[in-house]
């Protein structure tokens, strides 16, 4: 049906969610990754990651407010992906692309992992 479509609304909402995160407003979970703590909103995490979707839809786990990830998960890679969730921007650096891809696989962020794979493939082609 006809309407007024605000084309940047999704981005504006995401921007404000990131502001809420940076001010620790209504954040409801701490993610512990290799001794580093990351505060976040469960709803954003589960909207972006299959792993967090599975955790927070589990009747035994949805109420947890501290989640420790596998000790093999890289804190820098997690930080980059958490920033991506709140900004839609994924920095491309040769030094971090592998760790970002492996962390994306762990978090079941399949589209990001596929994109990293394609980026690595195209880098090899060059």
């Amino acid at each position: 049906d006809s309407c007024i479509q605000f084309t940047r609304h999704a981005g504006d909402v995401l921007f404000n969610l990131n502001r809420l995160r940076s001010r620790d407003i209504l954040t409801d979970v701490t993610i512990l990754v290799d001794h580093q703590r990351f505060r976040a909103h469960k709803t954003v995490l589960m909207a972006c990651s299959g792993l967090f979707y599975a955790i927070f839809t589990d009747q035994l786990k949805f109420n947890l407010n501290l989640i420790s990830l596998d000790p093999d998960v890289d804190a820098e890679g997690f930080g980059i992906l958490l920033d991506f969730m709140y900004t839609s921007r994924l920095p491309l650096r040769d030094s971090s692309i592998m760790v970002v891809m492996n962390t994306a696989i762990y978090l079941q962020m399949d589209h990001v992992a596929d994109t990293c794979r394609r980026y690595l493939q195209s880098s090899e082609d060059i």
Partner: peptide, 20 residues
């Protein structure tokens, strides 16, 4: 015309900006 208005795209900001 069937009385419906056309869909309009609004490219400006849609909501307030939460301060830093």
């Amino acid at each position: 015309r069937d009385g419906r208005l056309p869909t309009v795209k609004e490219a400006g900001r849609s909501i307030h900006e939460i301060p830093r």
